[in-house]
Design a protein around this nucleic acid. Structure first.
Lengths: 226, 226
DNA sequence: CCAACGCTTCGATTACGGTCGAACTATGAA
DNA sequence: TTCATAGTTCGACCGTAATCGAAGCGTTGG
């Protein structure tokens, strides 16, 4: 009865509709200002401010002041995973907020999960790397094999720079549309931004959808075959 | 703003302290009656009844009537995973309800997660099976290799019976104390109950702790070396 | 058939938290 | 300096939901 961490507190934080809207908006990975989050959630700036204070105190979001703006983002990958997890059971128990619209297909195909690629193409990338032994699963941690290292370097990833960071290089993250893993961690983030840099893909404004160009699709299929 | 599943609803369900207490109590895997859950959460039976109705409507728990008792249990493994996930971020953000007591060590060593073995020994079992190629990871689904099949059969598991069931045989489940995977699914459940059957281990009453006998510890270490 | 038990429903109370208007602070621009 | 914009704090209002006492059902066991 009194053992274990206080799950009620943080669940309650997510449990408010306004805050849930803000958090899902932050799942895009971008840091958003208070007013952006307010309009996203359909509330006034004042209430958004109090909500943000609570979310920060609860360790769910981190804030960073820049000039007269205050940017908020999810505190870490764990939070993103938790939210995806929540979406999974919410979707499975049939409690959808809106009927599956035309947007859903695009969301299921390719979307950003916090900061890396998720959806069909995300799992395809993951599976392709796994199948070619570039990604290795030892215990719980994911590792990049030597062939994998040269592969991503050839793609233009600055691997030494990533390995210097404190954050884990590879992590797997579970999807809610697909029930499968995709690649998270700093490498997952770097790969997505590289795709955008190469002009293969482009994030759709005000959404989590990632749209691949026709060139990008063929290049992606070439580099990550099944 | 209006895309995706309704995470606020189910997060709000978990967000109430009383309900959170009930859910964590159900993490033991046992089905509990309404009165048991009421005392567990420190509330009266009436309120527990209304809470249970809401949890059932939300798809978090399933209820089963037996005589004049009504047994409630977690609806499925996904819920258990979600709760463990929540405990993880709650623990990480430092929002512990109680200071880490003497009970915590036992919890970290071996505990039941919904219905299978978690904690140190859970991850050890998982890693040991993986290291000996008895457990195989293809895509997202876990598979039991032929050597693995004969191994668990030798342990006394009725494998054909398990394979007949609709539920997946192997699944991995993430731990909140250890940040690593352990074996869930019907095989995970069967293994734990087999350990208890063999007298290796015994669940501690009114807790999620699993206590291994000295015989059980040596046998376990023999069967699941690292 | 009656009493005990487990659970549910109803009704009333209460309290907590979300919400916004208004006033205030801080930063940047003119 | 003055104005505009971004965000915070305060105060008051309001609604929702948690809670429990009391009464009502079923089921079990004598």
């Amino acid at each position: 009865m009194k053992e274990g961490p206080d799950i009620a507190h943080i669940a309650a934080l997510i449990g408010d509709p306004a805050r849930a809207n803000m958090l899902t908006a932050l799942m895009s990975g971008k840091a958003l200002t208070a007013t952006e989050l307010a309009t996203e959630a359909g509330i006034t700036v004042q209430t958004a401010s109090t909500h943000l204070a609570k979310l920060a105190e609860g360790g769910l979001v981190e804030t960073r002041k820049q000039g007269r703006h205050k940017y908020s983002s999810l505190a870490n990958d764990d939070i993103a995973t938790l939210l995806e997890n929540l979406m999974g059971v919410a979707a499975k128990t049939g409690h959808l907020r809106t009927r599956t619209g035309p947007k859903d297909a695009a969301l299921r195909k390719a979307r950003v999960c916090y900061n890396h690629l998720a959806g069909d193409m995300g799992t395809q990338m993951y599976d392709s790397l796994r199948a070619r032994d570039m990604l290795h699963h030892s215990g719980e941690t994911l590792h990049l094999s030597p062939t994998g290292e040269s592969f991503v370097t050839a793609l233009g990833i600055d691997l030494p720079h990533l390995q210097h960071q404190r954050a884990p290089l590879c992590r797997d993250c579970l999807d809610w549309s697909e029930r499968r893993s995709h690649l998270a961690g700093s490498l997952g983030r770097a790969l997505l931004s590289r795709f955008i840099e190469l002009g293969w893909a482009k994030p759709v404004a005000d959404s989590r959808v990632i749209r691949f160009s026709s060139l990008g699709s063929t290049e992606f299929a070439k580099h990550f075959p099944l």
